[in-house]
């Protein structure tokens, strides 16, 4: 798990299409705490990338730094580069609001707004002042894309809290795609859902691959194996210089390689369930 191998494995850009997003020597601090460092990743267009690893390895931190959600945490600091279509999103002239409009996010716990189902989906287009011909059509389209339309079409004015957990999470995905983002970040979207709801979300993610680049943090290795094209394995280790625990990217490759033929011993141990 030296930085040498990290660079080797992550420089594996698949094909010649430039990646939609990339992280270069990305590190994140919370105050004095160095949460994760030296992350190099390429996220390819219309692929699902899974970030896996034990708790505290910094995978959620990396995910949140991809659309500048870490800005909201006081004292959080980012070093290195995160590029979106080649543009570093941490440049001072970049508006984080604009970044989040293009890179949507779905959270661990379903968090619909305390409003109607319709207003939940319409909120994004409204606040971002999107030019919309018909909000009704946009809401319907988004809910259809999130495979939720048939379940809620007669109750669009009803409270989003009346939905089940799985439905709420699909509503959150509908809400995220209503603003037509380019990339969707999903932070353990199924961790509070039952297997049936999880299967529905996974099917949905596979569907959405046609239009969106998706990056998912998951604790469920079967889930990563099922839905992702590429997988990045993180772990936390003691830094030799500072002697503190710090999150690192160990290996990044095709999902099949990570699961069947990992280059690193720790990756193999983790994916085979021997640790973590």
């Amino acid at each position: 798990m030296t930085s040498q191998t990290t660079t080797e494995t992550t420089s594996n850009t698949r094909g010649h299409v430039p990646p939609v997003m990339a992280a270069r020597e990305l590190g994140v601090y919370y105050g004095d705490f160095h949460a994760v460092s030296g992350v190099n990743l390429d996220f390819n267009r219309h692929e699902v990338t899974a970030l896996i690893g034990p708790s505290g390895c910094g995978k959620s931190t990396v995910l949140r730094s991809l659309n500048r959600m870490n800005d909201l945490i006081p004292k959080a600091r980012v070093e290195g580069e995160v590029t979106y279509h080649g543009q570093d999103i941490y440049q001072p002239k970049i508006d984080p609001i604009e970044v989040r409009r293009r890179i949507g996010m779905v959270f661990q716990k379903p968090n619909p707004f305390p409003k109607s189902i319709f207003d939940n989906v319409a909120y994004g287009p409204r606040v971002t002042k999107m030019k919309v011909d018909s909000m009704n059509d946009l809401v319907e389209q988004s809910l259809r894309r999130a495979a939720l339309w048939d379940e809620v079409k007669d109750n669009l004015k009803g409270s989003a809290f009346g939905l089940s957990g799985g439905q709420q999470q699909r509503l959150c995905i509908a809400r995220a795609i209503a603003t037509s983002p380019d990339v969707i970040l999903l932070d353990e979207p199924c961790s509070s859902l039952d297997p049936i709801a999880t299967a529905a979300i996974e099917d949905l993610m596979t569907d959405l691959k046609q239009e969106y680049t998706q990056i998912i943090v998951t604790h469920n290795m079967q889930q990563a194996a099922r839905i992702s094209d590429t997988t990045a394995f993180f772990t936390a280790g003691v830094d030799e210089e500072s002697g503190k625990r710090i999150g690192r990217l160990v290996e990044y490759n095709d999902t099949s390689s990570i699961f069947n033929n990992p280059a690193e011993k720790s990756t193999e141990d983790y994916v085979s369930g021997r640790f973590g």
Binding site: N67, M69, L72, I97, E98, R100, R101, R102, G104, M105, F107, K109, N111, P112, F113, P114, Y123, G124, V127, T128, C172, R175, A176, T179
Partner: peptide, 26 residues
């Protein structure tokens, strides 16, 4: 709940929009 603020920021809402549309009504 902070999750509401996070959701709103995640949609690309500004701080003011988040406070006005989501936080204050609750």
């Amino acid at each position: 709940p902070d999750s509401i603020r996070q959701a709103s920021y995640g949609m690309g809402a500004t701080k003011w929009q988040t406070v006005w549309h989501q936080v204050l009504p609750v």
